[in-house]
Design a binder for these strands. Structure first.
Lengths: 246, 246
DNA sequence: CAGTGGTCTAGACCACCTC
DNA sequence: AGGTGGTCTAGACCACTGA
């Protein structure tokens, strides 16, 4: 292990950050897959030639970013979107009464297209590159709640189809990670209020022109690479978008 | 310093959590005020009779929650809402073009009232308890962006008035902390899309009935005590509400 | 220069889990 | 009993700041 440059170096980076980068690389390369246990802290310390405390600090940061999950007495695991706990991290929807909600994803359409200028820019693709477009409805306890239009790079999801989407019990992101080895890390959202057009009004069973919450999301994998652009129309009569400010 | 109960104790709490609680108490009691520097890690270690590393871990957590701010070479400081960096933590608004925005808060009205059932429940007050109601407009670069209706416990803000609100250069929360010793720690928001009523339409210069983003916020101080209920109507034609999912 | 936070180590011990 | 993460310590040294 290279020691950090030690005196007046303009590129000083602490040891634990270097370890952190090495662990991230192993995650990225698939050496450890979602759900897997990774080597113990002392094993990693030996492997990298540093003390256990230094490895610990690197893992601390990766756990804070939800890339890893620690479980005392058991070990440290690569986090996965199969875990229902990690599911509501990316769906900040709750019902007015705070009830537990039975959630249902209903894929409507899935087809192949070429990236227009907007999609190309957002997903960092060449204009005209192949993309997948998915239309989907989400119901919460038999009530339509969200209508999504989803744009995905064709290269990353070569054989995506309605059948495959229908086979998914849990979230789309767990499909991405298990079938396509695309690990969703983080997302940025832009929220606006808009008027329902004819299509979304019909799907969400509201009057045309009634207010909808538009959630535009860009989702990223490692290295801040965008892998999804999503426009979600939320019917917020009986639901709301929940956020915490700290 | 009491050592943590050590064997099979159901109430086990690590030392650094106890230290953290002690530091929090000193913040709460006003021993160290917003903007103040707190004693150095080694001073605190001596004062509490623990090692410097244990104090460090306690401060780590408080810094992660934005209660404290570390500055290498200088010391550790109590965070304050005067700091413009901490300002956009509680205003997740950005413009479509991503420009820097000149921001202006225009208080419209401020009066004293009695808590109705909704306000009383939200702010954990007795129904009929005195409250302050504030109406306010926010402009971003000469364009109206947000109309706020704000409900505050009368007991905490006894002499709040339009004059006092107008004297504030920065955020209301820095007024709360400097004049009323009420420190805003965190907030929960519920977002919905609604139709503009006559009042908000006029203030925000949009057509009556056009979609607005309604942001309902409950703000908390220490011990999860609610101190503010706010309904913000956001005109999202040229702005959006920004959120990061991690 | 002295003082602060930041990094790194080595070692001891504890809490939790599984076998 | 043995392995894992979690806590705590004591000490050394580094990076950054301001006088």
């Amino acid at each position: 292990m290279n020691r950090p440059a030690t005196t007046h170096s303009p590129t000083f980076s602490p040891l634990y950050q270097q370890i952190r980068a090495l662990i991230t690389r192993s995650l990225e390369s698939g050496e450890w897959k979602p759900g897997d246990i990774i080597p113990s802290e002392s094993d990693l310390a030996e492997r990298f030639g540093v003390s256990q405390g230094t490895v610990r600090k690197a893992i601390d940061e990766l756990a804070a970013e939800n890339l890893l999950v620690r479980r005392q007495g058991k070990g440290t695991f690569v986090s996965t979107h199969d875990d229902p706990r990690s599911f509501f991290r990316f769906l900040r929807l709750a019902s007015n009464e705070g009830e537990l909600l039975r959630l249902q994803s209903i894929p409507l359409e899935c087809w192949r297209a070429k990236a227009g200028p907007d999609v190309a820019r957002t997903l960092a693709l060449e204009p005209g590159a192949p993309i997948n477009i998915v239309r989907r409805l989400m119901r919460f306890g038999d009530e339509p709640a969200v209508y999504d239009e989803i744009y995905l790079p064709g290269e990353l999801f070569p054989d995506l189809s309605l059948d495959i989407l229908n086979s998914v019990a849990v979230s789309m992101y767990s499909l991405f990670e298990s079938r396509y080895s695309v690990r969703i890390i983080r997302a940025e959202e832009r929220l606006r209020a808009v008027s329902a057009d004819r299509v979304s009004a019909e799907l969400l069973q509201v009057a045309e022109g009634s207010p909808l919450l538009l959630v535009e999301r860009v989702t990223y994998t490692y290295d801040n690479k965008p892998v999804e652009w999503r426009r979600g129309f939320y019917a917020t009569k009986n639901f709301y978008y929940h956020n915490e400010l700290g």
